[in-house]
Write a protein that binds this DNA or RNA. Structure first.
Lengths: 117, 117
DNA sequence: ATTGTTTGTCGTATATTTGCGACATACTTT
DNA sequence: AAAGTATGTCGCAAATATACGACAAACAAT
């Protein structure tokens, strides 16, 4: 196996990476933004808004749903998708903590190549 | 070609996705955290800290360097890596804007499956 | 019941990622 | 000059991701 060395890392690192991977495709970013723009949950005609086939959009939706970032409830014929704002808020805090930790040291490198070792 | 539909999305969406992809692997998250933990730039014996081969770590470093998230300067025999804290700060703000936009609507879905469509 | 609509799943082709060994490069040291 | 050390690059194999057409399932509407 040439993958899945993931198990050797921290739970936090895995968690952050997992969410980052969910955002690692413009289509999924666009989906989340689109859901956020509609105050009410919109059904899967998200595909009509994206330059992708319905199948592909459905796959991206499943990926986001697998992480519980979005929820989908069947409403008769259509499916009602909406954001899990609570989880998104948690994730936001997680990312913030990571970035604060990463930028706490202050500028170590210069503008281009001025390492102060 | 079955990829690179990326061109059909917003610059912002592409940018966010690109950075997210950089964080989409626990090893790269760990590398950034490790660099942050050392106040001074540490050379490539990052590999010794990770459960990965030196080659693989080098590849992850190149990926982060390609996005300018980290910088590497040759210092004699060793290479001096350090974080680009300025860019990381910018990225942080970018993510924050995204998450705020996504969570601005407030809770739309209930705890498990209570969509209020 | 039959038709049409909305959605998800399956299979498939291609592209990309991941991980590592083997080699080349650059520099230090003796 | 020769040997040793630290890095990067190349090439390969396996795993994942991406995209989509074709089909099936569920429901509404006639």
């Amino acid at each position: 196996m040439t993958y899945a060395k993931t198990a050797a890392f921290t739970t936090d690192q895995q968690q952050l990476a997992r969410v980052a991977k969910a955002l690692a495709h413009p289509a999924r970013v666009a989906i989340i933004q689109f859901l956020a723009s509609k105050k009410t949950c919109i059904s899967g005609d998200i595909a009509a808004e994206l330059p992708l086939s319905r199948t592909t959009v459905s796959q991206h939706l499943q990926e986001l749903k697998a992480l519980d970032l979005i929820r989908g409830e069947i409403d008769g014929l259509t499916v009602c998708y909406c954001l899990n704002t609570e989880l998104l808020h948690q994730v936001h805090q997680q990312f913030t903590a990571f970035f604060i930790e990463a930028t706490a040291t202050g500028p170590v490198c210069g503008p281009e190549d001025a390492c102060a070792c």
